[in-house]
């Protein structure tokens, strides 16, 4: 795997790496992709209609409003909160 591809994947994943870490990631990913490449050329296709045995569409729960967790409980794990989730300014 090329360095540019790892940089691209890191950008998609919202991760940043030092140059040294990037070098290691290229080595690791190249080695891992070798295993994944074993299935690239198999003649097989996925049929999504065969694969829903755990979905019970005839028995979905009713669309009713239910009580949810209290605001203070939802906020208790946010590092930065003032009775709401605080984010950096997103609109210039």
């Amino acid at each position: 795997m090329e360095l540019d591809m790892v940089k691209y994947l890191a950008k998609l994943a919202k991760l940043e790496f030092t140059d040294e870490e990037l070098e290691q990631a290229v080595k690791d990913m190249t080695s891992i992709i070798e295993i994944m490449d074993t299935i690239k050329d198999i003649d097989i296709t996925y049929d999504p209609y065969k694969d829903n045995h755990n979905v019970y569409l005839e028995d979905l729960r009713p669309d009713e409003a239910m009580p949810s967790l209290a605001t203070d409980k939802l906020l208790q794990n946010a590092v930065n909160q003032e009775n709401c989730f605080v984010v950096p300014k997103v609109v210039e």
Binding site: M36, I44, T45, Y46
Partner: peptide
């Protein structure tokens, strides 16, 4: 990183699609 690679444009069918076929 691997998950993003498997799902990214141009690689999805070759990796994730095949893997799901193999699952079946």
């Amino acid at each position: 990183l691997l998950g993003n690679y498997a799902l990214s444009s141009g690689y999805y069918d070759a990796y994730y699609g095949k893997a799901m076929g193999l699952k079946q």
